[in-house]
Write a protein that binds this DNA or RNA. Structure first.
Length: 967
RNA sequence: GGGCGAUUAGCGUAGUGGUAGCGCAGCUCCUUUACACGGAGUAGGUCGGAGGUUCGAAUCCUUCAUCGCCCACCA
């Protein structure tokens, strides 16, 4: 390879290698290769919104997935990381609506449904690839040959099939119920899409007269006076002595003002739900506009007056004064009206929680509406299917037992269980156009005269016959072909209102659909909640309901990486769908990331402008840098405070890695294969032992999904241990002329670097691949074991005992080399005290505490920048010399005169005080009989050693002090 | 109202009973040929408060405080 440039330039290598990987099919999974010796590893990507752009949350989430996938490849697994995008109903529809409005000044209604959907597809084609290309820039090793979209034809068929199955099981039903209505999007929302926000408002008190007792007034508190026209009762608690006797009587509702008194009479009902502590203890009941009131209305059979339009303006029933007004404007007018009527008693500031549409950011309107609902399936199985995460820090988590999965961090299991224990039926219909259209065609006929269906006589007779089997309650299900194509629809026939019969036909067949349209059946106009397609993602993307090789090999998936914010929307629902349709969990492990915030802890948002564009960061620092920086600053289970500094650090780290390889390269050509065990210096053994330890620590971090810990281990090993110490010691050899020793050190370097590159690869895919080839390490490996790409190089193993014996890697070398480094650090501090510039050679004298091999002397000389460096066991230091004592000996920095005796004395005295206080601490412990008797022997010995060390230091300083006072 | 999490140096974070660590920022010195996207050294913490258990507590227990998140139909 040509000589490496002085600094790493990511721009020149990233695209090159990404193209290489894709062209070589490195990311493509082959189900046929899965075997007992080559286990499968799979992840499905949380599909980003198809028209979305990459943000820091994606970077965090997908970097983790990529690390897992790349690590699994190096572990010799057959890896499928299945990518794709989500059609994101509301978000995309609004985006396109806005664009159409801006460019053509048209609404979606102006265009019509069919034309609008065409526009969405055009939009999707134009913008849909953006986020995918961004993921590629980040280095994601997804199997792009299997990219999926939640609106792909086979995916649509899959969603439809699921709908029909659940419908037939009676789990999906249509009903007129209170739903969360978003007046902006003009659609129903699920409970999960509603976000409670505290709102500053006003609590109004107004009075109503009891009709049967003129002159008796009740006072009622409300935050929503504009809904008074919709009130159909007032409720009190039957146990409330103040009001119980009024139950059954009536009050006069003040609005709409123009109605006659008798038209405004509403009953007083008794209901336990009324809290008599709150407000006045009298509750206005508006069954059509409040969830709780709806329930009260059901219990007391109250009429429901819907006084609003879908866009939350008031309708005719709200009365002449409010009609046509927007709801908050109507509130003001209603208050004015009450005031005019003399009914308003007080208005005081009040803060309460109001449900907001998460997406549109406006208060939702509880609204009575006909929608499709799902009773969640497989709830019982989904409960308690989460096993605890590995509790022990040092033991890798074992494979979960069958039917169990693990959450990381474990605490999310509680959140999941709690949600599952309290779920209500899921409102799955949305009044949108972009999405999976509900596959239900319906037609209503008078009586049960099936000839009115427009079908032939035989079919009509068939219907009548089937219907006759059970026309009583929920109706009857049977299959029927409307298209004479042999394909069938699932029919559901039941008695609807007013002596009519309703026929619903559910089908996935295009021919059936056409026939149904021809027969005057109408398809339900609504589409399904986007999550109703996402919850099938793990198996729908693998070809279900066909039993594909992918499903055989890769389902259940191994890991899921998700943000905790979609634990209910997505994760929990996927678990239920997995059980219901696959009979098994969709994944074995779920890793929940934190939320990415800015460095002040604020959520990233467009408004605040605190959300950096990851692509800018990649352009500026490189993809590896943003990956490493993000991982390094993302602590396990906590939010991530993003700071560009972290990316900068990632870039610096890559540059360090680059230059460490460059240094190796500059020392001489050939890759050195064989390490000669007999020629290893203590430093060589030290770095090999450190490498061994780093691999072990790294494996633990991986088992715990602790990626910030993993990067910290890599950082420490490579920068602090390899670069700062080991490489520096080799310079003592390289300046010498012992060729065989030099070659051996190069062999150690090659060994360490080739291992290090592999350890780094999941985190830094690009630079490691570049260096893997550039340094020639690829050539040393078989093709599919790293020869072609570092992607498939085996993950390094920590050393077994044979290897340790062969290289004589005894832990005593750690102690020995550490002791030498300690002495060097202290010696460098002496230079600082003496104000000797670090580039200036200066004389040091070492009075060693034991015999030292020549390598130690050479290394110390070099790293202290000492010249001369004298080793003299009998050294008699002159008075007042700068000195330090360490385990390996006493080090002196003798300078010609110029010692500030006063300053030195003061410094030593301070030092002595500190040492003294440490000695007292240890002595006190050792003097305590409880301590000596109860403590484990190792701890006791360690304390005694510590005391000895401190005492030695004290004696040394004392000697120096004595010398100074003599001088 | 319930639940969960956090509180350790200026900032960010590690640390599950035995001498409080790391990174960034700071300060000092160094362009000594792998790297100034660097090297060397250094300062900075009574581990949120108060009790308790223990020979010994950042760590275990109790309690309080502050911050954050999630869940919840008090009008």
């Amino acid at each position: 390879m040509s000589e490496l440039s002085k600094a790493y330039e990511p721009q020149s290598v990233e695209d090159k290698w990404y193209d290489f990987w894709v062209k070589q099919g490195c990311f493509t999974a082959d189900p046929a290769r899965v075997s007992s010796s080559r286990p499968a590893y799979s992840i499905v990507i949380p599909p980003p919104n198809v028209t979305g752009v990459l943000h820091m949350g994606h970077v965090l989430n997908n970097t983790i997935q990529d690390i897992l996938a790349r690590k699994a490849r190096m572990d010799g697994k057959e890896v499928l990381w299945l990518p794709g995008t989500d059609h994101a109903g509301i978000a995309t529809e609004r985006q396109v609506e806005k664009a159409v409005g801006k460019e053509e000044h048209k609404s979606k209604h102006d265009l019509g449904r069919e034309e609008f959907i065409k526009r969405v597809w055009t939009w999707k084609e134009k913008h849909g690839g953006i986020i995918i290309s961004q993921l590629k820039k980040l280095g994601c090793s997804c199997d792009w040959t299997r990219e999926r979209f939640t609106m792909d034809p086979d995916y649509v068929a899959c969603v439809t099939k699921v709908f029909i199955e659940l419908y037939k099981k009676g789990l999906i039903y249509r009903g007129k119920r209170m739903v969360n209505w978003c007046p902006v999007s003009q659609t129903a929302l699920s409970d999960e899409e509603v976000e409670m926000r505290p709102q500053k408002g006003i609590l109004y008190h107004f009075k109503v007269e009891v009709a049967e007792m003129p002159g008796t007034w009740l006072s009622i508190a409300t935050t929503r006076p504009e809904t008074i026209p919709g009130d159909t009762a007032v409720a009190v608690n039957p146990r409330d002595a103040r009001y119980a006797q009024l139950i059954g009587k009536h009050v006069v509702r003040p609005l709409p003002a123009e109605l006659a008194r008798e038209q405004k009479l509403i009953p007083i009902v008794g209901d336990e739900a009324v809290d008599f502590e709150f407000g006045t203890g009298v509750l206005k009941v508006t069954p059509a506009h409040d969830m709780a009131d709806f329930a009260i209305g059901e219990r007391h059979n109250l009429p429901r007056i819907d006084i609003m339009n879908p866009d939350a303006t008031m309708n005719d029933l709200a009365g002449a004064d409010l009609k046509g007004l927007e709801r908050f404007r109507a509130r003001k007018v209603a208050v004015e009206k009450l005031e005019e009527l003399g009914a308003l008693l007080e208005a005081k500031p009040y803060e309460n929680n109001v449900g907001f549409s998460q997406r549109a950011g406006v208060p939702i309107e509880p609204r009575l509406s006909e929608q499709w609902f799902l009773k969640y399936p497989s709830v019982a199985k989904s409960k308690a299917c989460v096993a605890g995460s590995s509790g022990s820090a040092s033991v890798p988590s074992p494979a979960p037992s069958a039917g169990k999965m693990r959450f990381h961090p474990e605490r999310w299991a509680k959140v999941y269980d709690h949600w599952l224990a309290n779920i209500q039926d899921w409102c799955i219909s949305r009044q949108l156009w972009w999405g999976h259209r509900i596959p239900v065609w319906s037609k209503r006929i008078p009586g049960n005269d099936f000839t009115k269906l427009g079908i032939n006589e035989a079919d009509a007779a068939h219907f009548a016959n089937e219907f006759g089997k059970n026309s009583s309650e929920g109706g009857v299900h049977f299959a029927h072909s409307f298209s004479a194509s042999g394909e069938t629809s699932d029919c559901h026939v039941f008695v609807a209102k007013e002596g009519t019969t309703e026929i619903r036909a559910l089908t996935t067949s295009l021919k059936e659909k056409a026939s149904l349209d021809g027969l005057g059946f109408t398809q339900d106009p609504d589409v399904l909640d986007t999550w109703f397609s996402s919850w099938l993602w793990p198996f729908a993307t693998m070809g279900w309901p066909v039993k594909t090789p992918e499903l055989n090999a890769f389902y259940p998936t191994s890991d899921l990486v998700s943000g905790p914010d979609i634990i209910f929307f997505w994760v929990a629902r996927m678990i239920m769908a997995g059980y219901e349709f696959m009979g098994d969990l969709p994944f074995r492990n779920v890793y929940f990331t934190g939320i990415v915030r800015d460095k002040q802890g604020r959520k990233m948002s467009k408004q605040l402008g605190n959300s950096p564009d990851p692509l800018d960061l990649i352009a500026k620092y490189g993809a590896d840098a943003i990956r490493f920086g993000t991982m390094r600053s993302a602590p396990l289970g906590q939010d991530v405070l993003f700071d560009e500094k972290d990316v900068e650090l990632g870039r610096n780290f890559c540059n360090k890695l680059w230059n460490a390889c460059r240094f190796r390269q500059l020392q001489g050509g050939e890759t050195q294969g064989e390490i000669n065990a007999s020629k290893l210096r203590s430093d060589d053994k030290w770095i090999l032992l450190k490498l061994h330890q780093a691999i072990k620590d790294l494996n633990v971090a991986f088992a715990e999904y602790n990626f910030s810990e993993a990067t910290a281990i890599l950082y420490r090993f490579f920068w602090n241990e390899y670069c700062d110490w080991y490489v520096e010691t080799t310079k003592a050899l390289f300046s010498g002329d012992d060729a065989s020793k030099k070659a051996n050190a190069l062999a150690v370097m090659d060994f360490v670097l080739s291992h290090t590159l592999r350890l780094f690869h999941p985190f830094l895919p690009f630079i490691t691949e570049e260096l893997w080839h550039g340094m020639g390490y690829a050539e040393d490996m078989p093709g599919e074991q790293g020869g072609r790409s570092i992607l498939f190089a085996p993950w390094p193993k920590s050393f077994d005992s044979d290897t340790r014996d062969h290289y004589a890697l005894d832990d005593c070398y750690l102690d020995h080399v550490n002791a030498r480094f300690e002495l060097i650090t202290q010696g460098r501090d002496l230079r600082r005290q003496a104000r000797v510039a670090s580039n200036k050679k200066v004389r040091f004298v070492l009075k060693p505490s034991r015999d030292l091999p020549p390598n130690d002397i050479e290394v110390m000389k070099l790293l202290l920048n000492a010249d001369p460096f004298e080793v003299n066991a009998d050294y008699e230091p002159p008075k007042g010399v700068l000195s330090t004592k360490a385990e390996m000996g006493e080090l002196y920095l003798p300078l010609e005169g110029l010692i500030d005796a006063v300053a030195e004395t003061a410094r030593h005295k301070k030092e002595l005080e500190e040492i003294q206080s440490e000695i007292i601490k240890v002595e006190q412990k050792l003097a305590n009989p409880n301590f000596v008797n109860k403590v484990p022997p190792a701890v006791l010995a360690e304390h005694r050693q510590r005391l000895e060390d401190w005492q030695g230091k004290r004696a040394h300083i004392q000697k120096l002090l004595d010398g100074l006072s003599d001088a």
